[in-house]
Design a protein around this nucleic acid. Sequence first.
DNA 1: CTGAAAGCGCTTACAG
DNA 2: CTGAAAGCGCTTACAG
Lengths: 349, 349
Amino acid sequence: MSDTTGNGRARAGRPTMKDVAALAGVAIKTVSRVMNGEPTVAPELAARVQDAAAKLGYRPNLTASSLRRGDRRTATIGLLIEDVSNPFFAATMRAVEDEARQRGVQILIGSVDEDSERERELAISLIDRGVDGLVIVPAARDQSYLIPERKLGTCMVFLDREPRLLDADAVVSDNRGGAITAVEHLLAGGHRRIAYLGDTLAIATAAQRFDGYGEALRRAGIEVDPLIVRHGLRSIDSAQQASHELISQAEPPTALFTSQNLVSIGAVKALRQAGRENAVAMVGFDDFPLADVLVPGVTVIAQDAPGMGQLAAQLLFARLDGDDSLPSTRVIGTWLVARGSGEITPDGR
Amino acid sequence: MSDTTGNGRARAGRPTMKDVAALAGVAIKTVSRVMNGEPTVAPELAARVQDAAAKLGYRPNLTASSLRRGDRRTATIGLLIEDVSNPFFAATMRAVEDEARQRGVQILIGSVDEDSERERELAISLIDRGVDGLVIVPAARDQSYLIPERKLGTCMVFLDREPRLLDADAVVSDNRGGAITAVEHLLAGGHRRIAYLGDTLAIATAAQRFDGYGEALRRAGIEVDPLIVRHGLRSIDSAQQASHELISQAEPPTALFTSQNLVSIGAVKALRQAGRENAVAMVGFDDFPLADVLVPGVTVIAQDAPGMGQLAAQLLFARLDGDDSLPSTRVIGTWLVARGSGEITPDGR
DNA sequence: CTGAAAGCGCTTACAG
DNA sequence: CTGAAAGCGCTTACAG
């Protein structure tokens, strides 16, 4: 089976089309036809080729065929997300995978960890490996570095956040609208002093959620008080610490709006530790596992993570199938899930 | 830039070595040398090549180089896990990714969903895409289908469960030992009637944990009572239902041992719903997020998910680097994390 | 319907 | 130190 290399040394490699062709007594082009299911092969020959392939355990080399093929497709896409162990991204990832599987497409993944440099490295690395397209949760300040790649034909769809300085499809949540809903829910419960705890404003989703927070307060005629606003919270621990400080201050808030699931969990821990979980109201952006089992249940703005992942994948495959309409951003609705924590009134009943 | 194909049609493709060579006025072999960092190129020539490459935005085609190269490496590995949205597997996945990144290796992933057929399809599909090796959480009854692939040189390491009918490296938890620890902890608290709730016994880890359960009871001189043993629990809902039934029966258990995180969560929900969370003890196998925030905190047997993923990846890369020692199974220790639920006594105090 | 030749982008194995 | 030729495994673009 292709048993010699140029220097005559024996090579114990996989069987190739050449080996199958030799065993079946046909040209390799005929083997190629059979493997690709072309119907113009005489049944008798096709059977002989199938037998030979089965006998040798032959498997087509996708790398080689993609290299020679006109479309250069590898049936592989790349998926760059913030962190695979965040439940929101795990759910979107799973949805992308399911959509890809239906098309026989495999997924290369990478965790970007909110690191611009890593986003670039991973994106380029996946493109170098020949992915047909990319689904990206962007972290870098802008995505202009992908302009040449886009021109060269790599399809890409952005997930959770829109790209900057690059015109491409995106699927995002209604972050501003969801935040307004959250804060108006607390306002309707009688709260006037509502704290904001969120991730760094450099992340577009955090900025939009903070914007919604401010907008809801403005509509209610309340000014944003910087004393009860905390940005830059990136972990459960930092959120717990910040929540602890907020509820310990002179004029503490009667309610918290947390803009992300890790921040919500940190806030829950801080309230619990202070014994204030039934006294201070709280609404979190993004649902998380067990939010319904905690006491009180955590009221959240839920996002359609699987739906977003599925749509992003569908848009990508549409582009790969030749869709050349103008790029657009799809905004996916969010909804309030009331479970108790968001329905605590200002007097702590 | 390679602007004509055989038939003379213009092709708007990526620049190739040929284009760089033409622009720099050298042979493509010289471009190849520069791109691969071979030191034997005259500095002046190397600089000219670098300039030309930068000007054209040239990126080496990894697919093509891997095809021609002797080792055939693609700097890609495959990772097949049960489900990316399970926190245990998400954590192992992240550890494998981190280990791979250090080596410039990318990861192709697939969720097997405990489906034999899917395991086979995915494994073969990834091998066809030329992965250098595989990390697999096996679901199929046996892995003999991989014997030919192993002979042809694909390296593989099994994670969480040992392979069957295939001799290969594996990294697993001390499932039996952990289960014994869990049940002995409950026995030490005075429990004599301890229920078992677990996944299907077809999954090796579930079988081993059930075995440990039986062993701990045997040592204490207690017989396993089939009335308080439930297998085949695969979801939060089914575990909740089973837990509900167990604690509602004539002679209910005073403690539960749940063999997996989804089962533990279902049990927590059932106990909560019945208002029995402070009356019935519970120890779960495998830690999960927020287990410490629930009331009572959920006592668990913790596994070193990141450590297991890291070790599996390290073993795989060692094999890829030529390690040809005999395959072995590494058993990783587990430990008890007492948080309250496991310390409830039989009289419900 | 079948096959011999050329080539995808790169590296190997030479020769100079 | 540099390059022309051959070839990785496959498909394209022909001719029969």
